[in-house]
């Protein structure tokens, strides 16, 4: 299973447009993944062909009259609509002047002015760079992709490749010495954690409660439980369903950091999130 997961992650790395904010998919099969992979290749091929066509059919721009100072290029780009659901088409419209070489990140070389339809699966910044004799200029438009609808099929459950995204977006909560109170700073942290979890409703989480190495084993197990439970309570208050959250105390039985000083102890006094599989 680990090897499989590793392979998936590698594939994921090879196709960045399917990686980070992709709709969460639990138990994605290799076959499904290959389908996505082939689809993406097809899109690449289509884009390449379209670009090639336009290049061939469009007349080369007339040579500019020699000038002492070439005028600076201008560029605009817009998207319509700017907010879509995953997989919906978006029209990009761009216009440049005094440019000889225009490209859009993720698409490649494009005509100096034109339109193109794209199908982003995650929120994307379309960044256009126009270069001319008078210099270069860039323009950006953003397309926001809505989080996926509440999915019904296993296909839309979180994929293992979401671990990285989860770790990046759901941050651990740290506690004061001998305390299981959620501080105001931690409260705002938990709101962010809750926002991610709300946006990814298929993810179930387990909150691990940890304590530093001082103190007594049994008391620390209970304290770790109370820490995990306090984080759960705060998440539920922020709108995350209690049935999605499980707590486990590790007390001082498992330590993140094994030095015997305060900075390390602080590292060990935490509520840690991980995906519950």
């Amino acid at each position: 299973m680990n090897d499989f997961a590793l392979e998936m992650n590698n594939m994921d790395g090879a196709i960045p447009e399917f990686s980070q904010n992709e709709p969460t998919k639990r138990g994605i099969t290799l076959r499904n993944y290959c389908r996505l992979y082939l689809t993406s290749l097809a899109i690449f091929a289509a884009l390449a062909a379209a670009n090639g066509c336009k290049k061939q059919t469009a007349p080369p721009p007339p040579p500019l009259p020699p000038a002492m100072t070439a005028p600076a290029p201008t560029a605009t780009i817009s998207a319509s609509p700017t907010v879509v659901n995953p997989g919906d088409g978006v029209s990009l419209l761009w216009h440049t002047t005094n440019a000889t070489d225009v490209s859009i990140d993720g698409i490649g070389k494009v005509p100096t002015s034109g339109t193109q339809t794209v199908n982003p699966t995650s929120s994307t910044n379309y960044h256009l760079v126009a270069r001319g004799d008078g210099g270069s200029i860039d323009a950006t438009t953003r397309v926001t992709v809505n989080p996926p609808m509440a999915p019904a099929a296993a296909e839309t459950a979180p994929a293992m490749s979401d671990d990285a995204s989860f770790r990046q977006n759901v941050q651990d909560v740290f506690f004061d010495y001998d305390s299981y109170d959620v501080s105001p700073e931690n409260q705002s942290l938990i709101l962010k954690d809750a926002a991610y979890l709300t946006a990814h409703p298929m993810i179930k989480v387990v909150i691990g409660g940890y304590c530093d190495e001082r103190g007594s084993t049994e008391y620390n197990l209970a304290l770790g439980e109370n820490r995990a439970s306090a984080v759960k309570t705060a998440l539920v208050a922020a709108g995350v369903g209690a049935e999605r959250i499980r707590t486990v105390s590790y007390g001082k039985e498992k330590q993140f950091c094994s030095e015997h000083d305060e900075s390390c102890w602080q590292q060990n006094r935490r509520g840690q999130f991980s995906i519950d599989r």
């Binding site: 007594s216 008391y219 197990l221 209970a222 304290l223 439980e225 109370n226």
Partner: peptide, 12 residues
């Protein structure tokens, strides 16, 4: 049945 109902950890 519960013996205690106090805030905080109760153990051992």
């Amino acid at each position: 049945r519960a013996v205690t109902s106090f805030r905080g950890p109760n153990v051992s």
